[in-house]
């Protein structure tokens, strides 16, 4: 990278950077600052009381808990799917590979009504679960299902390229030296894909925390039980409590910033490892 450090002969730096900053400011930064400025109307104790009210805290617990659980499931199955897609031939593989991104391309409201239709008591899956006493739709489990759906592509898509890049020689060497497949996986493959896996996990987690469209249809919206934080923002708005809504929005914004920072650090970690290897 050091070769770029001298003065570049390429033109357009000022124009390109200027436009980038202007556009970003107009569309993203200035609007986001509105949330912070609006919240500044509150004193610190007022702000604190708003964002730590029991119902709000319960919504954080659900949002983060379900997002975390969904991201964990996605990390496990995402790794499995990526592994199968990279390593094993099977008929229809290209089709399956293309379908992985469906949750990304499918509008969230469509996902919401569809998952609800499947998991309610008279739905395709619900009819088998309900007699067992398992209720999915309109419970926290429903929130978890919706978040698993929307987070599905992230782990697969971050792990897949890294798995493809792993050099076979390393595994052959391990096998020559007598390692079992499981040992090779645990000691060689897993450490290599760990940064990508963590990034995928963090991306799925970040996406899940903000998710609204698919969740509101399938969550029961019971205060303290199945109410997610973005819904609470909407609820506050509909009670004409703009400042309260914005205060919770600010908390979510800060969390987004932090998560993003972590994700970028992770990606730096991957590049760093790649550079060493």
């Amino acid at each position: 990278m050091s070769k770029h450090k001298h003065h570049s002969v390429l033109p357009g730096f000022n124009l390109a950077l200027g436009f980038t900053l202007l556009y970003l400011s107009l569309v993203v930064l200035i609007p986001l600052s509105a949330a912070f400025i609006h919240t500044a109307k509150l004193t610190w104790p007022e702000f604190w009381n708003t964002v730590t009210a029991p119902r709000v805290v319960a919504s954080y617990r659900l949002t983060f808990g379900a997002s975390f659980a969904a991201a964990v499931v996605n990390a496990f199955f995402g790794l499995l799917v990526a592994w199968v897609l990279v390593r094993y031939p099977f008929p229809g593989k290209r089709l399956v590979d293309a379908l992985i991104d469906l949750p990304f391309a499918l509008p969230t409201s469509v996902a919401g009504i569809t998952l609800t239709a499947i998991y309610v008591g008279n739905g395709w899956i619900g009819q088998y679960l309900e007699p067992l006493g398992i209720k999915v739709a309109f419970t926290p489990i429903g929130v978890f299902v919706a978040l698993t759906f929307i987070g599905l592509p992230f782990v697969v898509r971050t792990v897949q390229p890294v798995l493809e890049d792993i050099e076979k020689e390393l595994e052959e060497a391990a096998a020559m030296l007598g390692a079992t497949r499981w040992q090779t996986f645990r000691r060689i493959i897993f450490p290599t894909i760990l940064p990508a896996l963590t990034t995928g996990f963090a991306l799925a987690f970040a996406r899940a925390i903000g998710e609204y469209g698919s969740v509101i249809f399938i969550a029961g919206n019971i205060p303290m039980v199945s109410e997610i934080t973005p819904l609470l923002i909407i609820t506050k708005l509909e009670q004409y409590d703009y400042t309260g809504a914005t205060a919770i929005a600010v908390v979510m914004l800060i969390i987004s910033f932090v998560l993003l920072l972590i994700i970028n650090l992770l990606q730096w970690w991957i590049r760093h490892r790649k550079a060493i290897a």
């Binding site: 309109f138 509101i216 029961g220 919206n221 019971i222 205060p223 819904l231 909407i234 509909e238």
Partner: peptide, 12 residues
């Protein structure tokens, strides 16, 4: 309180 305890879903 008892009535709302019996409400499994609160739609918006």
């Amino acid at each position: 309180a008892r009535l709302y305890k019996n409400a499994p879903i609160l739609d918006s």
